[in-house]
Each structure stands twice: as structure tokens, then as C-alpha cells.
Nucleic acid binder design. Structure first.
Lengths: 118, 118
DNA sequence: AGAGTTGTTCTAGTTGATATAGAATAACTT
DNA sequence: AAGTTATTCTATATCAACTAGAACAACTCT
């Protein structure tokens, strides 16, 4: 389990951390029952504040991707199965989007808008 | 042409304005050659600063969705055709995502991550 | 040519989210 | 009982978002 961030990006650190873990989940690198590394450990490894990592973990919990308990840590839920199932279709959409010359930013914005509107 | 925003949302105003216009474009309500309303007009109508609207317009220009010139305003480009083409597939993805119980936020984040990674 | 329109650029100030820091606490594991 | 880990609290610093006002440059229309 390796969390990657890009300190120079304009994306918030907590969002990058969460995105990295979501990506691992969708790719099947994280399975139901797996434990995320302790927040303190990630914070030290990335040279980032503990609260920043916890913010990312809490977002993942709000999305239903992990369960969190003190002393036990963050454990991946069954929801990851659905992610892996969606993965192929997202790949196809991204591929066609590229073929049409639509930027990742524009595609993302469109999906966001449509997903929220119905 | 009607731009809608939600002042209470945590989404930046300029992003909401841009998203509203992208949505109109993808739905076919905006066609190549159509003019966006003047930024000053939108600013007054939404009770928002001129710079905030221009920031949204400039983002749309960076995405290739509109051309902008002083005195003439913002004109929709041919790129909208590609958007309308993608629209159906995005609708399908969103539908399946809902069926799997995946939140709009999670779906959006996944698409963003995957679109940028390849 | 002249007047009006519209985006561009500049300076400046306010607010809120992001991130950091340190500490104490509560729930869980071994 | 001891160690681990998330939770909660206060506090501070920084930066993006937003606002405000003004001047400017390129385009349209009469």
C-alpha cells in the first residue's frame, strides 16, 4: 500500500491522498477487509501533517469506502467491489473522450455535473 | 441562455458558472456559433463580481469551448459537437454508478483520477 | 469617423479553506 | 496493563476565491 502525492499540484493534499487510495481500490489493489496504513505512518512517510491524512481518510469514510475505529484503523469495505466493476466502463469513456479531443478537465467537469443533476 | 448558481454550495462560483455553461453545451442547448451573454450582464444577473464571471469564461476558453475577443464577446466553438457525442455515454455511466450505489462524488473523483493518469 | 460594447489588465483588500503544530482523549488490540 | 490509533480541541500561517474600482484595447454598429 503506497500513497503517492505531488506537492507541486494545485490539488489539495488531502484530496490527492484520498484519490490515490480510491485509485488503488478501483484497480483491485485494495480488497474488502484490507487495512489502510495508520494515518501517522502515512503522514511521516509523505512529510505531511497528521490532520491532513485524517481528513483524506474521513472523506473516504463519508463515501463508504472504509470503516474507521480508534485503535483499529481504517478498513476497506465491500464497496470496493462496485468500484472494480465500474472501472472498465470508466476506462472506455476516458478513451473515447481522448479520441474526441476532450481534455480530462472538461470530461471530469461534465461527469460531475451530470452525476449531480439527476 | 440562463446561467444558474447555488450560492450556498461549497463549489467555487466561477466553477459553477463554467459548469452550468458546459452542461448547456453537452445538452445541445448551445450550438457552434452561439454567443454567451456578456460577462457584465451575467455578473449583474447573478449578483456576482465581473472578474468571477470572466474567470469562468476564461476556463471555458482554455478548454477550447469558446473563442473570446474584446468587443465581440465569447462565441461557442465546434468543440460542442464532441460534447454532445459524449453525453449519452456519460449518462449511461452515471446510471450504472447509481445502480451500484456509488456516490456522485466518488464517481467524479474516479473519472478525474483515471482521465489524468493515462 | 465616432460612439458604444466587451474582454483584458492592473492594484488592492477581505474572507474562508487548506495545512501545520501541539496536546489531550477515547476506543480498540495484544 | 500497555501500546496503537482515530477523535477532538485550540491556535496559527498561507493561499485561493471573491470583491471592488479603474483604466485600457479591440471589436461592432451607425
Amino acid at each position: 500500500m503506497l500513497v503517492r502525492i505531488e506537492p507541486t499540484s494545485d490539488e489539495p493534499l488531502f484530496e490527492q491522498i484520498a484519490a490515490s487510495i480510491r485509485s488503488d481500490a478501483a484497480a483491485g489493489r485494495l480488497r474488502s477487509g484490507d487495512r489502510l496504513p495508520p494515518a501517522r505512518e502515512v503522514a511521516t512517510a509523505l512529510d505531511v501533517n497528521l490532520h491532513t491524512v485524517l481528513r483524506a481518510y474521513q472523506d473516504l469514510r463519508d463515501e463508504g469506502l472504509v470503516d474507521m475505529r480508534r485503535g483499529r484503523g481504517a478498513v476497506v469495505t465491500d464497496a470496493v467491489a462496485a468500484l472494480a466493476q465500474l472501472r472498465n466502463e470508466i476506462d472506455e469513456l476516458v478513451a473515447q473522450s481522448r479520441h474526441l479531443g476532450i481534455s480530462p478537465e472538461l470530461l471530469t467537469s461534465l461527469v460531475k455535473e451530470i452525476a449531480h443533476d439527476r
